[in-house]
Write a protein that binds this DNA or RNA. Structure first.
Length: 396
DNA sequence: TCTGGGGTCCTAGGACCC
DNA sequence: TCTGGGGTCCTAGGACCC
């Protein structure tokens, strides 16, 4: 029998900012105790609520709603900006702490990990006791609380972690699925989102138990092959493994909501070049090459489009990425005003198809990037970048 | 001065090959 | 001298997660 822990930080961004303010800015007020949220800048059209305190939740404020709407619900709402560098630091600290408990740790998001204790639980006589010890250690050592879900697979561990918050340990072992999970609303089931739950309710499937016992052949008419997966999930069945994939993503993407909608190709090109810079740097730092690149956009009407293409000679060269991205950009720019633009690379490999380098100057170019990257990695603010930026800066 | 940003996975349909 | 069908690769779009 497998033993899986799911550990997530309660209101992660808000808790972490609170810890930061108390520790480094000598705040006397713990923002977790007042109606507060973490949100971006509405003037830059980043006004989305990213995390909420429990007092803010009492006003019905939820992520990710607009800051505008959140403020309408609570006039005294206190708003704090996200501090991603500190969040990353906290996330790494937690991850390294988990590794002292078991080597089998999967980072599921910035504030969530799965721990596989199947092969290590013999070291700990009582897993429930261990969970309480972990939870209390984190609270005392770092100053924020977590929820821990314990189960026989990842799905149930994650479901258990959501039962009631904060600062709680819950179990959802195989023999508890009917009593603890089946009464829940069907939309509470992992991977059943807004679109599916709407359809399920229409079919009279309101609880996870309803779904678990529904005729798969009937459900197939509405959900195709996904019907079988959904019924499996509702029965608490999940054989996915805890995989230590630290840092190894299948794609890297960057996107940006512009301050104003635009049809101006020059503005979009500049954004795309900037993203190719960042993505190229990330690829080179991890010694990865991209075989596929995409441009994504969102129009002023919130309609999303994307265009992608294979890159025959895998690359992590900024200007190669940019050249490919530009071809896609020309396809994607239509009559729509563009609100959000992004670049995504995928099919990442750690080798380079070097056949073509006999005919071009790739090797020399690689050396140039190494020098540029060393400087950029060292000095965060004064970046070496393609000449187009200098021109732009001078025009300000 | 309403609606962010970074991911994974699946499916349908077209192109192309034999 | 009349157009089947299997397999693979690729793209676009959508659902879902945090």
């Amino acid at each position: 029998m497998n033993i899986i822990f799911h550990i997530d930080v309660n209101n992660a961004f808000l808790s972490w900012t609170s810890v930061y303010l108390l520790k480094y800015e000598n705040y006397e007020l713990d923002i977790r105790t007042i109606p507060s949220v973490i949100a971006g800048d509405p003037k830059k059209r980043h006004g989305i609520v990213l995390a909420t305190s429990y007092p803010a939740k009492k006003y019905g404020i939820r992520t990710p709603e607009s800051l505008y709407s959140a403020k309408n619900k609570c006039k005294d709402l206190q708003v704090y900006k996200p501090n991603y560098a500190f969040y990353k630091e906290m996330s790494d600290k937690l991850y390294n702490y988990y590794l002292t408990i078991t080597p089998d740790v999967e980072r599921y998001s910035i504030d969530e990990c799965f721990l596989d204790l199947t092969n290590t639980s013999y070291l700990y006589d009582d897993v429930l006791y261990l969970a309480y010890k972990i939870k209390d250690y984190i609270k005392n050592e770092y100053g924020f609380t977590v929820n821990i879900g314990i189960a026989n697979n990842k799905l149930c561990a994650k479901m258990a972690g959501d039962f009631s918050k904060p600062d709680k340990v819950h179990t959802l072992f195989d023999n508890e699925i009917k009593s603890k999970m089946w009464p829940l609303k069907v939309e509470d089931l992992l991977y059943v989102g807004a679109s599916s739950s709407k359809e399920l309710h229409r079919l009279g499937i309101n609880t996870i138990g309803d779904l678990a016992n529904y005729d798969p052949n009937k459900l197939k008419k509405y959900f195709k092959n996904r019907a079988y997966d959904m019924i499996k999930l509702a029965n608490g069945l999940d054989d996915s493994k805890v995989i230590s994939t630290n840092g190894k993503n299948k794609c890297i993407s960057l996107s940006k909501t512009l301050e104003y909608d635009t049809r101006d190709l020059n503005i979009l090109k500049k954004e795309v070049l900037h993203m190719c810079e960042e993505i190229g740097l990330k690829l080179r730092n991890e010694n990865l090459y991209a075989s596929c690149i995409a441009i994504t956009i969102k129009t002023d009407l919130f309609k999303a489009y994307s265009h992608q293409k294979k890159i025959l000679n895998q690359t992590n060269d900024t200007m190669e990425l940019y050249k490919n991205a530009l071809e896609l950009l020309e396809v994607v720019v239509s009559n729509n005003a563009i609100r959000n633009i992004g670049v995504r690379v995928s099919d990442l490999v750690n080798y380079k198809n070097s056949q073509m380098s006999l005919f071009d100057s790739n090797t020399k170019q690689d050396d140039v990037w190494k020098i540029i990257d060393n400087i950029n990695n060292k000095y965060n603010n004064t970046k070496i970048m393609p000449a187009i930026f200098y021109k732009d800066d001078n025009n300000k």
